[in-house]
Simulated assay, not measured.
Amino acid sequence: MIVVADTSAISNLISIGRESVLESLFGGVTIPPAVENELLNWHRDIPDFVTVMKPVDLDAVLSLESELDPGEAEAIVLASELSADLLLIDERKGRIAADRLGLRSTGLLGVLLQAKAAGLLGSLKPILGELTERAGFRVSPAVRSEFLKLAGELE
């Protein structure tokens, strides 16, 4: 399975010490150089299961950078070039751009739901708490409610 990631999912999971969930689910994750730079701005190391690969079509990257940040733009172009099975991206504008290119995408919350379904994680409610408190992950009350409902953990 080819999985390309933007910064958010990896960075947030590193912040709470749960980055191994990505390796357990996907084996490996590929990121473009802009995402590598963003990760290294926040974290000392990048996990060993993460591979850095540069997108080839720099014109496509530049075109997407008119609406997205460099990490998102490079990740989307790289996912398209690799015919990735999945793109990990949280930002709404990025997901819309990925959808325009026919890419299958999910965000951090989708990854957590997959990990729970695979038996890799127990309750997601405390993990969501860690993400908001320690990693600064933002989620609206409506999305939080829907997420916990999907996880079977709605109060």
Rank of each mutant, 00 (worst) to 15 (best):
V4A: 03
D6A: 11
D6T: 02
N12E: 08
R18D: 08
S20Y: 11
V21C: 07
E23S: 10
E23N: 05
G28Q: 10
G28V: 14
V29L: 04
P32M: 00
P32Q: 14
P32H: 06
P33D: 07
A34I: 01
V35W: 02
E36T: 09
N37M: 09
L40T: 11
H43R: 07
R44C: 11
D45A: 08
F49D: 00
T51H: 12
V52E: 05
M53Q: 15
K54N: 14
S63N: 13
S66V: 13
S66Y: 14
E67Q: 15
E72F: 13
A73L: 03
A75M: 01
L78C: 00
L78H: 02
L78I: 04
E81V: 02
E81P: 03
L86R: 09
K93G: 11
G94Q: 08
R95F: 14
A98G: 15
A98Y: 07
G102V: 15
G107A: 02
V111N: 04
Q114V: 09
Q114S: 15
A115W: 06
A118E: 07
G119T: 10
I127E: 02
G129I: 03
T132A: 04
R134S: 15
R134W: 05
V139Y: 03
V139I: 10
A142D: 12
V143S: 02
L148F: 00
K149W: 11
K149Q: 13
K149V: 02
L150M: 06
A151G: 00
G152Y: 00
